[in-house]
Design a protein around this nucleic acid. Structure first.
Lengths: 200, 200
DNA sequence: CCAAAAACATACCTATTAGTATGTTTGTTT
DNA sequence: AAACAAACATACTAATAGGTATGTTTTTGG
């Protein structure tokens, strides 16, 4: 039983270090050697726990990346309160909370979507799963808002959810090109204006 | 003079093949060998014309990628006609025009932004330049729309431009994860709804 | 406590990478 | 036509990639 725990701890360590390196330097340019150097373990240890880099990548997505999105963008949507206000707060506050590094490096999920989202079906599905979770949560709160009369009814919740997510991921990429927050402020103004339209 | 022309033709050939490979397989995973195999020229030829892969990358961005965005998204904004209608048409029609491959591979610019937009300052600037061109053109037509009373005045043109671009680039990435156009249709609905807000 | 298995380490392999050194061929200039 | 430079080719290098083979150490179950 002690061994099983040790195995779990090691795998978690590998996943953590891999996520960080993928985020800072990209997926393709991060080698197993670099990851294992970070863990201070050996390559043998890696291939004992994972059969390939692909398998690790999938675990990083379904564990680390997904958890990050859930924590930052999905879970807050499920809190009680005025639906309209929650949506507005989540999308604007999250942006403002980001560290300098997070602004420069962009969104881990969006980076992966655009770096490896076209070659491997397995990566696609793992990433799509996160997007679907996010969209579902947004649709849910939009529907709640409609029922509680804080959000207009003549709008497709799916459409709004997709548009909100698209713009958020888009700006996280674009912000990487700049060295100041002007573009983020513009995004927030544009978003606020959009949300005004769905407000009842 | 004949030599100068030959040089230009060769460079253009290399850039074309490089752009295609970058688009289909990514920047980092495309080697000089692969590019030159496509041109049926040699590695020696490549390093005669370019001093590094980075130099080629910058030319691909500032020539091919920029031209593509200008042709598809910027130039149409400068045509005469109702400003509101032009914006709506450009953003919706362009999406519907994309081939299956273009839907699966996403936006060449956005792919590069998210794959190499964080390491090299030179890449950042080249890509930022395209975004700025796009934003400027959008602001211009939005301002024109305001003057001609087809677009509301109480909106920051910069904010709307940024939000429109963000959402467009975002959806091009997200669409890569899917095998059908549902998400694009939702985006268009969401966009239409947004544009309704700025319509006068 | 001892055999088996899990956890990890070391050394290696083949392929590929960006880039260089040194050619040969083709075009230009005088 | 000869001298020269530009255009391109061939053969290489050192580094790095993912992955494997073969160990040693640690834990576990009987």
């Amino acid at each position: 039983m002690q061994q099983e725990l040790k195995s779990e701890i090691t795998k978690q360590l590998i996943i953590d270090k891999a996520f960080n390196l993928f985020y800072q330097n990209g997926f393709k340019t991060t080698s197993i050697d670099k990851i294992m150097k970070e863990t201070t373990l050996s390559k043998g240890a890696f291939y004992h726990h994972y059969k390939s880099k692909k398998e690790l990548g999938l675990e990083v997505i379904s564990l680390k990346v997904e958890k990050r999105v859930v924590k930052g963008m999905i879970a807050p949507l499920k809190e009680p309160g005025n639906a309209y206000q929650i949506i507005k707060d989540v999308f604007t506050n999250r942006l403002k909370e980001f560290s300098t590094n997070e602004k420069q490096q962009g969104c881990p999920m969006n980076n992966l979507i655009n770096e490896i989202g076209n070659n491997e079906r397995a990566y696609q599905n793992a990433l799509k799963n996160i997007i679907e979770l996010w969209k579902t949560a947004l649709v849910q709160i939009l529907e709640r808002g409609k029922q509680e009369h804080s959000i207009k009814e003549g709008v497709s919740s799916q459409a709004v959810a997709t548009y909100l997510i698209s713009a958020f991921e888009g700006i996280r990429g674009i912000r990487k090109l700049y060295t100041n927050d002007t573009v983020l402020d513009e995004y927030i103004s544009g978003l606020t204006f959009y949300l005004n339209q769905i407000k009842k």
